[in-house]
Amino acid sequence: MTIGTIAKLLSAEIFTGEELSEKEARTACGSDLMSDVLAFIKNQSVLITGLTNSQVVRTAEMMDIVCIVIVRGKRPTDDMVQLAEESGIAVLSTGYSLFTTCGILYANGLAGGDRILA
């Protein structure tokens, strides 16, 4: 699924990364806990979160995540947008909740990429 498609499905506002709309994202994760994103997530390309601070972008950068979706209509802070621009990460904002956002993307074919922990 391309970042452009994600933006369309979520009626999202694009704050930075307009030029990345053709970039492919294969998997996604939804979390407000960056500790968990850093510890559990493998090869995810979209981060869906309700958290808005610069560490969200730093975490995405370390994890090679290409797109951040902020939920519930929150806006990214200015330093988030600036950091994301520098790192080539798209930042979108949608009015949907975390749960609904994940549901829409999952229903349209974006995978979770989970490894089930036995």
Binding site: D32, L33, M34, S35, D36, L38, A39, T49, L51, N53, Q55, V56, T59
Partner: peptide, 15 residues
């Protein structure tokens, strides 16, 4: 509040 403090960092560094 910044999204940290789950007690995962040191184990993750080791990993």
């Amino acid at each position: 509040q910044m999204g940290f403090g789950a007690g995962m960092g040191l184990p993750n560094m080791k990993k």
